[in-house]
């Protein structure tokens, strides 16, 4: 099923088994930030897809462009950032060409969002119930009472005890984990096909993190919602995601099923990333790390962006840019797997 052109066979297949459009399909996305010193490319040729009921992890160091990808999908890039190329489809509908007004109707209804810091994501001056009812009524035709019932149902669904009482309370009366549950309830308000979860557990205690990831998994399976889970935490990805995309300096370096990427990494960067995760089984005195740091937006090297830190880099890596190719069970952007010389 690597073919994208609709063949007769595929058309026949979809007629027999109406497989829905992917929750999210990003193809060749490029995001640029024009500055006084020239145009900086934050996202360079990123293509990914999230199927309904699937959690796609997007992992990378800070600055790798994973959050920007999420914001680009939501149409919330901050000026002067702009989508310079590629297409974004949410449930089969192209969204990157929509006007701000049209986007307002898609956001919340077809794609929801969960952000990093639940402490600041809710408006402090409105009760949780008011914010839920506002969102529900915006996207549905429900009456005030029906919307309130739905709000109660949502709070119950995300595991908030005593929802009748909680509905009347304000965000400051909730703990961090409870607030993140409210944020998730808000994202679910209109049953979107896609949820962009940007570091949903980063600001939470470790014990709460597990509860939130479990909740996300359950909601994803129950509602057949596609989730794009953006995080720097490989542990969260390992527990939550079905497939994973590894990003480095605005590009995709590896993509595959989560267990394959973790246990059978193909790209030197992913290998470094995986060996940097401390294991409970082998006690070590020093933690492994990848030498150097990710190049900044304005000083990315030519060729493969990872070449200055790569132990296997050859002359070709400094000259040409590798594309994603089949590499073992995964796909990786590395000349090692192109069969050519480095």
């Amino acid at each position: 099923m690597m073919l994208h052109s609709p063949t007769v066979l595929e058309a026949a297949e979809s007629a027999a088994d109406p497989s829905p459009a992917p929750a999210l399909e990003v193809s060749n996305l490029t995001v640029e930030f024009p500055t006084r010193r020239g145009v900086l490319t934050a996202i360079d040729d990123v293509s990914l897809r999230v199927e309904p009921g699937e959690i796609l992890g997007v992992v990378g160091e800070s600055g790798a462009g994973k959050s920007i990808t999420g914001l680009a999908v939501l149409g919330l890039l901050e000026a002067p950032g702009r989508i310079a190329g590629g297409e974004i489809h949410v449930s089969g509908r192209r969204v990157d060409t929509l006007t701000e007004e049209e986007l307002t109707k898609v956001r919340g209804r077809e794609m929801g969002a969960i952000f990093q810091d639940p402490l600041t994501a809710l408006n402090p001056l409105f009760s949780v119930g008011a914010q839920l009812v506002e969102t529900i009524r915006l996207h549905t035709d429900l009456s005030r009472e029906a919307a309130r019932d739905r709000a109660l149902h949502l709070l119950r669904e995300v595991g908030i005890p005593a929802p009748e009482e909680r509905l009347r309370q304000y965000p400051h009366q909730f703990s961090g984990g409870m607030r993140q549950r409210v944020v998730i309830a808000l994202a679910l308000a209109a049953e979107p096909e896609l949820i962009i979860a940007d570091e949903p557990t980063t600001a939470l205690d470790v014990s709460i993190q597990a509860q939130i990831t479990t909740l996300l998994r359950r909601l994803c399976k129950d509602h057949r919602t596609g989730i794009m889970l953006v995080t720097h935490d490989m542990g969260v990805i390992a527990e939550t995601a079905d497939r994973v995309v590894v990003m480095y300096a605005g590009r995709m370096v590896e993509m595959g099923r989560v267990e394959d990427v973790i246990h059978n990494a193909q790209h030197p960067y992913t290998k470094g990333l995986m060996s940097a995760i401390p294991s409970l089984h082998d006690r070590v005195d020093t933690l492994t790390q990848i030498d150097g740091s990710m190049p900044r937006l304005n000083s990315r090297p030519s060729g493969c962006a990872f070449n200055p830190r790569c132990p296997m880099a050859g002359p070709r890596c400094r000259r040409d840019r590798p594309n994603l190719v089949d590499a073992g069970p995964n796909r990786a952007a590395c000349f090692l797997h192109e069969g050519g010389t480095q």
């Binding site: 939501l74 919330l76 307002t104 109707k105 898609v106 956001r107 919340g108 209804r109 929801g112 969002a113 952000f115 994501a121 809710l122 408006n123 506002e134 969102t135 915006l138 996207h139 944020v183 808000l186 994202a187 308000a189 209109a190 962009i196």
Partner: peptide
């Protein structure tokens, strides 16, 4: 930002 993401 979150309010915009909710489609307000």
């Amino acid at each position: 930002k979150f309010a915009r993401a909710r489609g307000i």
